[in-house]
Design a protein around this nucleic acid. Structure first.
Lengths: 205, 205
DNA sequence: TAGATTGTTAATCGATTAACAATC
DNA sequence: TAGATTGTTAATCGATTAACAATC
């Protein structure tokens, strides 16, 4: 792998390539080209070749890329060739949907604990998970050494919970609360807010 | 408003500004500066001024921006100074979470119909909504003239459903299925896939 | 007035695309 | 071999930042 710093915008495209390649592999394909992959994900062939070539020479002139080989490489680069423990904070509707989501395990993630501050909910089950008390969140996350969290608490609580997560050692937050989080440089945040995403499209209607 | 083409990357930041400004307004603030807004959303003051100035001169030297005035302008630019009808396709866990989400109405959106192809689900209720038969989706969308959809069906079904939505006149799709959709140029798609978002962060851990 | 902050220009920085030699 | 496709370079295109005159 290249030692130079890889731009974040390239890192952001790799999971999209990974997802498309996995689908190709599932449908029995063995090889693909930058052209074909580009058509699947809506990105130019030149850009796909450039992105991939940041990390090594993974293709062959004339024949393209071995799908399985490229999958393995991308998983290694993104560090999803292992299973990451993730905690889920907030057991509302969105928390339930994520807890029941079957798509995490084969893409590198596993929910290990669900926390909520509502004492009525604590102790009740979501699928196989028992909802735990948010009061014990920091201590448990420290003990387990978890580095990733999904945040589905109401917006007014989100910054405070995020601060606690970071204090507990979390370094990556998938934030469903409709608010921008203030975090240190060594913490990554990804935002999912359906209203914001819809608002990105209405301009063009 | 400027007649030149506005880059999509700028349009994408406006909903984030809008969300932060709304929070400021809710907490009683009257004015803000590019500096202050930038700290809230994690974007440089220069960029915020540049973005906003694409659409007019909305600020005042020395005092900054009137929050309410800027809110009104941004809502007008993004066309969320009205309520958009949105259909929801797929009444699984994610569909339920979105159907129950209270954050749409005051940000410009209203779910008008929920469709599912599971005959067992058709006719049952999610909150105030009765799940409708996917067989009638195209016709109903055409009749209602709906332009936006949220897609929470399984990945293998997503492309087919998207094709039908487009045929029915939908021009903006918020896609929760973990797959890249192939759509014509005049259709916008936004992607929400928790595993993909998590995979964008593991590289840095 | 003095201080603050905008809107805008120019400079810098970074990303994308086109093109093609290399080679499978 | 002939055809296909990579990896890479150079050119183009676009986005961000720094700086500051204008002005509230």
């Amino acid at each position: 792998m290249n030692a130079e710093k890889i731009p974040d915008i390239i890192i952001g495209r790799l999971p999209v390539y990974l997802r498309a390649l996995q689908r190709m592999a599932d449908s029995g394909l063995k090889t693909t080209s930058s052209q074909e992959l580009g058509e699947h994900v809506g990105i130019s062939a030149a850009q796909i070749r450039k992105d991939i070539s940041q990390f090594g020479e993974f293709g062959k002139q004339g024949t393209g890329y071995s799908i399985q080989f490229l999958l393995d490489k991308l998983r290694g680069i993104l560090k999803v060739d292992r299973i990451w423990d993730v905690v889920l904070i907030g057991a509302g509707d969105m928390g339930h949907a994520l807890a029941n989501y079957q798509g995490f395990t084969n893409r590198g993630f596993r929910i290990v604990s669900i926390f909520d501050n509502d004492k009525e909910k604590v102790g009740t089950m979501i699928g196989e998970y028992k909802i735990e008390d948010a009061d014990q969140m920091v201590e448990k996350i420290k003990t387990m050494g978890v580095k990733m969290a999904m945040l589905t608490v109401p917006a007014p609580a989100a910054q405070n919970v995020a601060d606690k997560l970071i204090q507990a050692g979390v370094r990556a937050i998938l934030n469903y609360a409709p608010i921008s989080l203030n975090v240190p440089n060594n913490v990554k945040v990804q935002y999912i807010d359906p209203a914001t995403h819809l608002q990105r499209m209405t301009y063009y209607l």
